[in-house]
Nucleic acid binder design. Structure first.
Lengths: 349, 349
DNA sequence: CTCGTTCATTAAATCGATAAAACGAACCTA
DNA sequence: TAGGTTCGTTTTATCGATTTAATGAACGAG
């Protein structure tokens, strides 16, 4: 078989007309061979497919979009990472998103979303100019985020990474079950023999933070362990955490579950301050499995979000929504997994 | 003035024909009002612009692309972050890229690039199907990367984040001057009174690593300080670094410049092992200003890459290349900046 | 053997923009 | 006043695909 030459090797891309000429048919027949093969006589189909193969034909998305009003594009607004925040792992999510989209014949179109309050500008632009078929949203936990209601009203398909914490639920979303993560952390610690397990969380009021606290609490209750005086809160900041965790250590906690790796690191420092060693004297579990967790010493056991799966699910839900606008909203909670490192060692054999 | 209604509020987007009808002119006149306003009589221009404003008209990119063969799209292949690696904060880069592109009327189109060897598949697809106008490449330091030669041969505009270390230079690139970064680190340490300044780097052979070593070396020479027995190498791994730095500390180094934050953290541990305190007893400087650097205690002084500026420059060079295919290749080296934290404290007053 | 079906294929129309060519009015020159 | 410019606008054609309507061949029934 002849090696299929790159379309642009000759001059300009291969058009449907060239394929048609080569196969001895008309343009619509080539189109049908791709989009409705059952309409062709098997013999014709084979001839057309061969011509497509030989010419390396790829339909022009611009022409398809113009005709069908569907761009096979999914919009995603990139927020700048606020300096100081540990929110780096978005690369993994974006890659998973791209990959899942590619597999379905879609692509991700980026636009720069302003840092402060969620503006609708970029969303309007992508809709009008690029005819995007839908959007993936992230960072949806801000209060008064206008995006979901607006997109819903416009009838534009979208899916959010992050559930809605308000009562009124709008549209589909995918989220990670934070409570299940801290619950698993507690179970792990209990299996190691710990009973005095404390929780270091953020100030109440954030959906994500309260959810993570909830998982710790329910696991403790399940094992009939007291939670009173075993819980502290702090800003997501190492120094604040170092201070906030002290009472818990004073109260004799042998293990700390933290709502973030940053908070967990605060525990490390508080322990060292009093001459104790994280992992050996007090077990510590973080949340997010940030790059930092792996390079700390001792390595920080942490709850890892399945970002690849989140990306895939986002695309799956979005495609379903695009296929049927009126379907029941689907909401997916994914289980995080515990990455066990040296900060939660097995008891001496 | 009437509030401009969202195009899709009525039914379907606003087309150029609607604007033309409203302004009492023909379609091409509207087109000219946007693309060649000097061709219109001022009075007509004003009338057309008003109609555009009132209708909220945004030209359809699909139609424009079809006609002009320019999509105003820039392709970018997202690689998955290899697990274990200190994920560079690519989000910042991507945001900057998007923002700079948006400002110039372009957008970033993602595709999933396979993890292993750089495949050309995604690049071909974006060219043929989406008519992308150019590409931004990253992770170009791999040997035998086929992308640059291939794109160059195809005559497709591209710009790389990361210079080419081989002799044969192809195309435009933007990079961060790693040598200038470590040089500045040394200067900073010298100003604090240090003289025995060691360098902890990667194994020789990587362009990036050798460059960072080079900056340290030249600064030392400039101040007539010895570099012999002040240099060690290690894999980019905390434990390896901890071991590798020992001889340097044994030799009495009072400061260590590391080729990465991971290596710098290895120094922290080596110091603690011998009862010394990073920052107080021995100064440490890292490289990349990863999120980890900020949350360590003491905070790690680190060389920060100007990722926002890199993104902007990438777009600038790419636009220039698209405007003139035959222009001389432009290569931009950006200065990193030293983020000073507590690991390099000022001497006691 | 003619006429109505069925089925595969083609011809024609269309999406929304822009480039090129045609057009017509105003103005200038001879 | 005829003829030539200049200038602004419109007409026409086009990009590459898909949708709809039309076409023609093969076939069966009457």
């Amino acid at each position: 078989m002849p090696r299929s030459p790159r379309s642009s090797s000759a001059k300009g891309p291969v058009t449907i007309a060239m394929v048609a000429a080569r196969a001895g048919v008309s343009a619509p027949t080539v189109s049908n061979a791709i989009n409705a093969p059952e309409k062709l006589r098997p013999e014709t189909l084979e001839r057309v497919l061969r011509a497509i193969e030989e010419t390396g034909y790829r339909p022009s998305r611009a022409a398809q979009t113009l005709r069908t009003r569907s761009s096979k594009l999914i919009g995603y607004g990139v927020r700048p990472t606020p300096p100081g925040t540990t929110a780096p792992v978005m690369d993994r999510f974006l890659h998973a998103l791209s990959e899942a989209a590619d597999d379905a014949g879609y692509r991700i179109l980026l636009f720069a979303s302003p840092p402060g309050g969620a503006s609708l500008k970029g969303y309007e632009d992508l809709l009008d100019q690029h005819d995007v078929d839908g959007f993936v949203l992230s960072d949806t936990d801000e209060r008064g985020d206008p995006r979901q209601p607006w997109l819903d009203k416009q009838g534009v398909p979208f899916v959010a990474f992050g559930r809605m914490w308000s009562k009124r639920q709008i549209g589909d979303w995918v989220d990670v079950d934070g409570a299940a993560g801290t619950d698993a952390a507690v179970e792990h610690l209990i299996s190691l023999g710990h009973r005095k397990i404390a929780f270091l969380g953020w100030e109440r009021g954030s959906g994500v933070g309260d959810d993570r606290a909830e998982g710790w609490q329910r696991a403790m209750r399940r094992h009939e362990l007291p939670t009173r005086a075993r819980r502290a809160q702090s800003a997501d900041d190492v120094d604040a955490a170092r201070t906030a965790v002290k009472p818990l250590l004073d109260a004799g906690a042998t293990a700390v579950v933290a709502a973030s790796d940053t908070l967990a690191l605060g525990c490390y420092y508080a322990l060292r301050e009093r001459g104790a060693t994280p992992g050996r004297d007090v077990a510590v579990v973080g949340f997010d499995d940030s790059p930092t967790a792996g390079i700390l010493s001792p390595g920080l056991t942490s709850v890892a979000q399945p970002l690849e799966a989140v990306g895939r699910e986002c695309v799956r839900l979005l495609l379903a929504r695009m296929a049927d606008q009126d379907a029941e909203p689907e909401r997916v909670l994914l289980e995080p997994s515990l990455v066990i490192r040296d900060s939660t060692p097995a008891p001496d054999a």
